[in-house]
Nucleic acid binder design. Structure first.
Lengths: 364, 364
DNA sequence: TTGAAAGCGCTAACAC
DNA sequence: GTGTTAGCGCTTTCAA
């Protein structure tokens, strides 16, 4: 691993010059530039990113917090984030909080501002206070998929209208003629899926279709969770013709439950979810779902983060600032907080596949 | 973001002392230690990881190269890697090579040795020459799942006996009484899945069961790939009673194909794969498969990497070395190369679930 | 037990 | 155009 000054020596110039040609800064004579380039090639020089980070006062990485990358939704998202980040010259560090706010805090404390110049948060079950703190310390934070555009979280975020997703789902079921519907909510009551559920229920209600409490289950956001919930629901309400799940995983589990109960999907039972993860396409029958703009959201999140990194929102009281690097500006916080940026991603849209259909006229 | 010397000033000591108390190095008086700790708390000091990396000559991260994290197998692996890495004090940077060796090289060139002190390679379709080069430059590299323990790759690796996995699969089918078998290989002919396939074929042959060329398909290692291959195979060989796929994803696709062809699994057709990804448990019917020790391999890989980082294998010719940091040792390469370490993970084992059974006596 | 000082590899003023 | 110089925040000899 050769260093800048080794290259400089080899080219008979000074390291500043090498630095300049490498970053196309400052005017450099054509011949020196050539000599430098040769030296770089000859020595196989590669810049030391940690050193550069230190000197520049900024890191080449961003941290992506997820609760557990094993959730089949995340990898798709991580992929998109990584792609977008790369084109901005950032590497991404995956931080599995494992649903534990303490683990999340530990990550934030170590990484934010020292190894990563920004933090992306994807439903990682983090303490908002921690997030605000890292922000106050000067490291931009953005929430990747805020579920309620009309109810801003007080942090920069990209919002996706999940309420609308719920509405779309209900509408589809209604149009098909379903009236005996049950719902599986993939989070705690009032939890993260609340907006999806409300959109669904409200739409049903407007159409005069009730969804009594016994027709909804709060379950883990997994295939197994959906499976168990669907079985219970189906056994309790044998006349059910459609199951709505607030996420694809439980919807997939519901299809399995139907299968095990000897019910054919979609002939005997319609099932639909929200998100459109890859698996949705790959189930038998393929899952009807309300697609959410995952990749778009990832890209927006990355670009919002980049923006925040480049031009940190001015703090209201101009803070005493001796620091050489502007990135450390937004230091103060509570007294005068400006509205955090919020980007709204495009609307969810219904994707009709094989798991929904009209209910049978009569059921046995 | 306060710095060491700010803390030092606040505590009335010098930054060296603060550094010492923070890392429990050097003897420090109990009272100064207390004052320092208070100052740290008061200022909310957190060490700057990039600065530390530069000073120590080592980075707190490792790079994990994968071809595309969207493959459902990887996240499970990434999760395990991340956990293991964290307990070693390393963050992990995910590098999607996207099947492109050039992308892989770009990653290696930028990251290795400058931002990451080690690289883990998980089937990332990389150029071995690049890998050797980064190793020669002093950054340890380990291959995460080498498929042929008896045929070392010339790089440190953790090996899993995938040939054995193929044997186990064949044995299971044989014991159930299957004789009309087809196979789907999830890689190019002679590609990464070759060992699995050979183990399978050889075991069949020893039992006197032939697997003619028309009974095997090389297909993409995906659900869709398996689906298409299975359909072809099944249409070509209607008497088939069992499908073996070298990976779970194509096996899952095969189940779908059977479904669409009106064949019941396992009554009309048995299907099995290799790996035991989470999805295998969650299909209908659940997939019989040969489980491979994913988590164990991840942990072994991380710990092998750590070992290599801590005690880099001595180069044979003691290389001229002025560098202050020992990590830059193993610089030379080809003429006198010592045997790279290879760790063998525990054996694959058969997991019988619902997708395999005895063949029907007679078929219509 | 503590401090002074050098240096990790790089960038960025500023001077020449 | 190119070199000089002073750091970035930390660790680590070596002295005191």
């Amino acid at each position: 691993m050769s260093t800048l000054s080794e290259v400089a020596a080899h080219a008979g110039v000074t390291s500043a010059t090498v630095s300049n040609v490498l970053r196309n800064r400052g005017r450099v004579g054509e011949q020196t530039r050539q000599r430098v380039l040769e030296a770089v090639a000859a020595l196989g020089y590669r810049p030391h990113l940690a050193a550069r980070a230190l000197a520049e006062g900024r890191a080449p990485t961003i941290a992506l917090m997820v609760s557990s990358i094993a959730n089949p939704f995340y990898p798709e998202f991580v992929l998109a984030v990584e792609r977008a980040a790369r084109t901005n010259g950032h590497f991404v560090i995956v931080c599995n909080t494992n649903q534990d706010p303490l683990a999340g805090r530990a990550y934030l404390e170590q990484i934010a501002g020292t190894l990563s110049e920004g933090v992306l948060v994807m439903n990682a079950n983090l303490d908002f206070a921690d997030l605000h703190q890292t922000q106050a310390r000067g490291t931009p934070v953005v929430l990747c998929m805020w579920e309620r555009p009309n109810d801003p979280p007080g942090l920069p975020c990209v919002a996706v209208d999940f309420r609308r997703a719920g509405e779309l789902a209900a509408q589809h079921l209604l149009e098909l003629g379903h009236r005996h519907i049950v719902a599986i909510v993939g989070s705690k009551r009032g939890g993260i899926h609340a907006a999806r559920y409300e959109g669904f229920v409200d739409t049903l209600r407007h159409a005069g279709v009730k969804l009594p409490r016994t027709c909804v289950r709060y379950a883990p956001d997994t295939i197994e969770g959906g499976y168990a919930a669907a079985r219970e629901l189906l056994e309790l309400h044998p006349l059910t013709t459609a199951i709505f799940a607030t996420n694809d995983l439980p919807a997939l589990g519901s299809i399995h439950a139907a299968f095990d109960l000897g019910r054919n999907v979609p002939q005997d039972l319609s099932v639909l979810g929200i998100t459109d993860i890859q698996l949705a396409r790959q189930s038998r029958p393929p899952l009807t779902t309300v697609a959410v703009p995952t990749v778009e959201a990832a890209e927006m999140a990355v670009s919002l983060l980049r923006e925040l990194i480049e031009r940190p929102p001015a703090a209201h009281h101009a803070v005493h600032q001796t620091a050489r690097h502007a990135a450390h500006t937004a230091r103060n916080s509570d007294s005068a907080r400006e509205q955090p940026r919020i980007c709204v991603a495009s609307e969810p849209r219904l994707i009709v596949r094989g798991s929904t259909g009209a209910p049978r006229r009569k059921r046995g």
